[in-house]
Lab assay of single mutants.
Amino acid sequence: EDAPSSDDLEQFAKQFKQRRIKLGFTQADVGLALGTLYGNVFSQTTICRFEALQLSFKNMCKLKPLLNKWLEETDSSS
């Protein structure tokens, strides 16, 4: 699987934040939901840093598919 470019990540982080707010979730909600869904709880700080593009590139790449999946799950259930 190709690693996303930093442009991709930036684009995704923006879209993710907009969708999250529109769906009415806090950063902490998302962190907990990831724990429920995938067994990895993320702190509010981590989600905040992801949205602000302040995580390392490697961590951004790791989180992106999880957050993407969460969006898909959340979209389909709302």
Rank of each mutant, 00 (worst) to 15 (best):
G35H: 05
T36R: 13
K22T: 10
L55F: 06
E1A: 08
P65C: 09
A3E: 11
S77I: 10
Q15S: 12
L32M: 11
S76P: 14
L34N: 02
L23G: 03
T74G: 05
D29W: 03
K14F: 05
N40A: 08
L37I: 14
L9A: 03
K69E: 06
E73F: 10
P65G: 09
A33V: 07
M60N: 12
V41C: 09
D7G: 11
G35L: 02
L66C: 07
A33Q: 14
T36L: 09
D8E: 10
E51Y: 00
P4M: 13
A28F: 00
A13Q: 02
T46D: 14
V30Q: 01
Q27F: 06
F16K: 03
I47R: 03
R20S: 01
F16N: 02
L32K: 13
R20M: 00
P4S: 12
G39V: 01
L67Y: 05
T45C: 06
S78N: 15
T46V: 10
G35F: 08
I21R: 06
W70Q: 00
T46S: 08
C48T: 10
N59W: 08
K17H: 10
D2N: 15
S43K: 07
K64Q: 12
Y38I: 14
A3R: 15
L37V: 08
R20T: 01
L37A: 11
L23M: 14
N68H: 14
L63V: 06
E10R: 10
F25C: 08
A13I: 05
G39P: 09
S6C: 15
V30R: 00
L34Q: 01
I47D: 00
S78M: 07
L63Y: 05
L71W: 03
M60D: 02
F16W: 02
L37M: 14
N40D: 13
C48F: 13
T36C: 08
K58C: 03
G35V: 02
E10A: 08
Q11D: 13
L63R: 01
P4F: 05
F16C: 01
T74Q: 13
K62I: 01
A3Q: 15
P65K: 09
S5D: 15
I47P: 02
C61D: 00
S76K: 14
C61P: 00
L34K: 02
V30F: 04
E72I: 07
A52Q: 12
L37C: 15
D7R: 10
Q27D: 01
K22S: 09
V41D: 09
F16R: 03
V30A: 05
F57W: 09
K17L: 02
S76W: 04
D2L: 14
E10V: 07
S6G: 15
K69I: 14
Q18G: 07
T36E: 14
D75T: 07
G35I: 00
S56W: 00
K22W: 03
Y38C: 11
P4D: 09
G31A: 14
C48R: 13
I21C: 04
T74M: 11
L37Q: 11
D29N: 02
F16T: 05
T74W: 08
L9V: 10
L55Y: 04
A52W: 02
F42T: 10
C48Y: 06
F50R: 01
T26Y: 03
N40L: 07
K62G: 05
R20G: 00
